[in-house]
């Protein structure tokens, strides 16, 4: 299975490198440039060294406090949605029909939320969850529970978490479904002969098969929830107060709202480094899982 070594393959990859580099490196240089300078306006910049970074990483300053707050909120958000979406997605994936007329219908309905433009996802939930005109908000309030996402921080959090679960659980479910379909029937028959319980079948046959696809799912979900912007912005705008201001929303406020270029650029870089570190971690785990699988394949 060893691939031949051929450096001419670089030519095939060249167009991709050029187009991504144009989009990634030039803007990144701009950001780095801004992050080490300060301005008094009038487009006159002067060298500020690592000043912005020192301020950003010191939680006692205004900028630092704000950064760590939104970082914390974002980490909490990612943790909550992963804790809900992954188990729920696997459960739904297990329940999906494998053949019959229901398959196409189920797939189409499940994929639909994924194809809704992100601002429309926000709009849908904004309307659905409003306490005066939304079905969800109206019902919850008539059950005697005080729920208003524009006023209560807890309600706002519940709304954006539910929205994300609505939006993305199908991704995990579809991934699990794809993984489950690749398990040969013989495995299940063997388990039946052994008299294995449903739970044992899941733990010993299905879960190991799902490991690889779930890793892709967790990677995508973690990254996307860490850079989510549009949906919560449309629903809550980061409010009430700052209670749902996660990293992206905070950064856009700083960069495009206040036009505070230096601190926004420093924040961008730190934000990017966090993503890079997480990405590297997942990538390493993923390639190791791949290597494991290839190794077991050779043995078999």
């Amino acid at each position: 299975m060893d691939k031949p070594i051929d450096n001419r393959a670089w030519f095939l990859a060249l167009p991709v490198v050029l187009i991504v580099a144009f989009n990634a490196i030039v803007p990144l240089m701009t950001v780095v440039n801004y992050s080490v300078q300060d301005t008094f306006g009038n487009n006159e910049f002067f060298w500020n060294g690592i000043g912005w970074f020192q301020e950003l990483l010191d939680p006692t300053t205004d900028l630092g406090g704000r950064f760590f707050d939104s970082l914390g909120r974002n980490a909490l958000f990612s943790a909550i949605i992963l804790a809900i979406e992954v188990p729920l997605g696997v459960l739904v994936g297990l329940c999906m029909p494998k053949k019959g007329p229901g398959v196409a219908f189920t797939l189409v309905v499940m994929a639909l939320p994924l194809l809704v433009p992100w601002n429309v996802v926000g709009t849908i939930w904004q309307i659905f969850a409003r306490e005066d005109i939304g079905l969800l908000g109206w019902i919850v309030n008539h059950l005697g529970i005080d729920y208003n996402y524009t006023l209560g921080p807890l309600s706002a959090w519940i709304t954006i978490v539910t929205m994300d679960v609505w939006h993305w659980t199908s991704l995990i479910a579809l991934l699990s479904y794809a993984g489950l379909r690749s398990i040969p029937d013989a495995y299940y028959q063997a388990a039946k002969i052994d008299g294995a319980s449903r739970f044992a079948v899941f733990m010993t046959i299905e879960l190991p098969k799902l490991r690889r696809v779930l890793l892709i799912g967790v990677l995508l979900r973690f990254m996307d929830s860490f850079m989510i912007y549009t949906e919560p912005f449309v629903v809550t705008g980061g409010g009430p107060g700052n209670s749902t201001t996660i990293l992206s929303i905070d950064l856009v406020k700083l960069a495009l709202g206040q036009f505070d270029l230096g601190s926004a650029a420093a924040m961008s870089i730190v934000y990017n480094l966090i993503i890079l570190a997480a990405c590297w971690l997942f990538y390493t785990v993923m390639t190791n899982v791949d290597a494991d699988r290839d190794a077991t394949r050779v043995e078999a």
């Binding site: 991709v16 991504v20 989009n23 990634a24 030039v26 803007p27 990144l28 701009t30 950001v31 990254m223 860490f226 850079m227 912007y229 990293l247 992206s248 929303i249 950064l251 856009v252 960069a255 495009l256 270029l261 926004a264 961008s268 934000y271 990017n272 993503i275 890079l276 990405c279 590297w280 990538y283």
Partner: peptide, 18 residues
């Protein structure tokens, strides 16, 4: 890996430089 990191880069970071 470098390509992958660009898939993961937050659009908010790139909005202004873009």
């Amino acid at each position: 890996f470098w390509l992958l990191t660009n898939r993961m880069a937050p659009p908010a970071v790139f909005a202004l430089p873009f």
